[in-house]
Design a binder for these strands. Structure first.
Lengths: 199, 199
DNA sequence: TGGTATAGGTAAACGGTGTTGACCTGTCAA
DNA sequence: TTGACAGGTCAACACCGTTTACCTATACCA
């Protein structure tokens, strides 16, 4: 069970459970980054990792498991929620605009572009709630915190979606600061109390 | 070329190009409505229509062609953009809330739930622009009309997305009128001029 | 009436996917 | 020496969307 992976030689081992697992994961990460999720097949990953196809399912249950693992490692919106309460929406707006301009890590961009895939969707399905809405709701507190969180998530997801589906060229053509400010205003409006109706 | 489909008998013909095409389309519509897009295979559609699989590709090019045809028949946001300018955002907000509550035709609901599928996405990719942003931009007019349209589309798409990915239970638990008003406020904010920065 | 072109339909295959079960093999412990 | 077993391999399975080659019944014309 706890058999050590190191065999004692100077360089690390080239086989063994953890090593193989890591190689598969690294290959998946690299290929997903370069070609998106849906276009990369299990056999491509295995071949790139110099490993048998069946091992993917042995170690990760299914292709989807690779995605889950990668997203678990990287986190979603890392460090975006934490920080000064007053500048939260500003940070989120900057993040959204940054994504609109195709910035962020190569992997993030690739997965944004693959966001349509059923697998990715299924994985996000859980993560949007636990990694975005839940922290947001906890962070905000108060009545209807989850509703506010959902609205914020809707705006953030929608911006990502409009880039995917339309290109968002008109938005990217705008002055960046003005666009950021407008999105921040939208997010602030999402967070305003629901007990007094908006004008 | 123009051979008539009617053979002269009292009841319509059960074979022939147009009849077969219509049967395939009807079966696709029915199955998509019941089970979504991705879960329904070409062979299921053909079998349900009592027709050979190859005919789907013969008459519609590919499975995706069925989707294109169905959406072309139904239209997207039918009659939503037209109408009184002043109540546009109200209509859109009501539409969004209605969708959030899972209303709309059964087919619309089914396709919303399948929205992740690459095929659906490819078909929407064109339609979001031509059926939503373009009319909106034309309707609004003025500088940056397309940017305003994109922002509106983002909010609308985001709300649909958050329902798909999280369930939007917190939003659906809200007082419907308050939620509609808030979404309308968001949409109005999307449409405000960009030349003067938002507060 | 006989022959033929053709539209409409069929059967079987192609290449691809994710996934699984049966088998082998090398290492370690008794 | 002999098992046990973790780690790895291979070939198959059940699908998928799509395409190709073939058949057949009808309509037209000499």
């Amino acid at each position: 069970m706890d058999r050590p992976d190191e065999t004692g030689s100077g360089t690390g081992p080239t086989r063994g459970r953890e090593v193989t697992r890591a190689r598969i994961l690294a290959s998946a990460r690299e290929l997903f980054t370069d070609e998106g999720y849906g276009s990369v097949s299990s056999r491509m990953i295995a071949s790139h990792a110099g490993v048998n196809v069946a091992l993917i399912n042995r170690y990760f249950g299914a292709k989807r498991g690779l995605l889950t693992e990668i997203l678990r490692e990287d986190g979603v919106f890392p460090g975006l929620i934490e920080g000064d309460h007053d500048t939260l929406t500003r940070r989120l707006a900057e993040h959204a605009v940054s994504r609109l301009h195709g910035e962020g890590t190569a992997l993030q961009r690739a997965l944004d572009d693959s966001a349509g895939d059923p697998d990715l969707q299924a994985v996000y399905q859980g993560r949007i709630t636990t990694a975005m809405i839940d922290p947001l709701a906890a962070y905000l507190g108060g009545d209807g915190a989850r509703a506010h969180g959902s609205l914020v998530a809707a705006v953030m997801l929608g911006l990502s979606r409009v880039r995917l589906v339309e290109g968002a060229t008109a938005l990217r053509a705008l002055d960046r600061e003005r666009l950021t400010a407008r999105i921040q205003a939208l997010l602030d409006l999402c967070l305003e109390d629901f007990t007094e109706p908006a004008v």
